[in-house]
Write a protein that binds this DNA or RNA. Sequence first.
DNA 1: CCCACGCGGAATGACTCGTTCCGGTGAGGA
DNA 2: TCCTCACCGGAACGAGTCATTCCGCGTGGG
Lengths: 208, 208
Amino acid sequence: MTTAQHAVDYDERVISAAREVFAQQGFAAPVSEIAELAGVGVASIYRRYPNKRRLAERVRIAAMSRVIAEAESAGEVEPDPWAAFVRFVRGCLRAHTGIGVVLPPYEESEDVSEELTRLRQRMIEHIEELVVTAQRAGQLRGDLRSADVFLLFKHLNPPLATEEDRRAELRQRYLELLLPGLRERADRLPGEAPDWDELFQMCVPGGQ
Amino acid sequence: MTTAQHAVDYDERVISAAREVFAQQGFAAPVSEIAELAGVGVASIYRRYPNKRRLAERVRIAAMSRVIAEAESAGEVEPDPWAAFVRFVRGCLRAHTGIGVVLPPYEESEDVSEELTRLRQRMIEHIEELVVTAQRAGQLRGDLRSADVFLLFKHLNPPLATEEDRRAELRQRYLELLLPGLRERADRLPGEAPDWDELFQMCVPGGQ
DNA sequence: CCCACGCGGAATGACTCGTTCCGGTGAGGA
DNA sequence: TCCTCACCGGAACGAGTCATTCCGCGTGGG
């Protein structure tokens, strides 16, 4: 069964590379890049998946499962609702979760598989629960909706935003979430300060 | 001078359309789309600008000037430092300011014009001042840096993010800015609630 | 009524990317 | 040791996209 084992490894490397590439660059990323990251030839990818779209679907299903797992474990590990919520958000943003792959539609006319639809529903329900629980405890601002969580994820995964995100209304909403967090407050945690020079260089065009 | 006036109108329409298109889709957007939005033929654009890059440079210079103007007027109009800061951020995000065009580098090896460099410096100084002033007044969280403002703008302009933004460190930082704003607090303003159904449909893939 | 001038949009050539094809290679059997 | 053959990497192919250029037309001034 050496051969079969080998095939499994191959699969795993490909899926993992696809998650990373798709999450960072969106589904428009070239297959060749996935192949390179996985250290295989493109043909090996096409030998296992009929086309790019199917590969993407597999990756999405895997990523959604991870998000669900993240939500479940967050609720179990952290008794405090706010802590659970924060743990979930942070967990989803860890690279290996691949939230960036969960968010964007592959294409306008994607015929969504049944499995994907079911997972999506479960995922939403889990997030809903985390939000509502934290709100009932008076720890999460009451006007937050689970849709906001997706919005937040989307903005934290810049390259994945689609046409609609640009709508002024959504930007407005996002800003409303952000600004209150910027005001000085006694209970703010110190937190680690990033390297300011580096941050500047990365954020400002034509950086010195 | 009817002809000259006509040419000016033309120019203005093109620049304005370019700002909109570039801000929304990034500099990779096709020139033809700018032409269509401006209601002119592509040739008319190339008759006035030698190539796409030069057009982009013009647009950036115009946008940076507007950002600077926004910062100046915010400081003058609002005596309260926090209000001035918020007004500036909101002002930059208004479509006609074109902050989305200011942020991204056009390309790796862009030879930045002198004018652009000078404007960039002025812009940074203005933002610095707004931030520091609000901090001295104890209204803006003290760990905010002007670089954060760019980071914020970048994330509020999803399609413009570049390779580097995805670095885990930056995401981490951004999250730190966001999360405190989500906690329940007495002084939170009510604000207008968006249409949740619509928000969901836009944020969740395969939306019902 | 004629004629440049300026315009819109089609044509061109370079390039990217999904998918397929092909020659090489190494493990395993004779 | 040599032969197979299943599997692999990367080159090849065809379609599509986009920056830039070219061309014939409409029109306003003479």
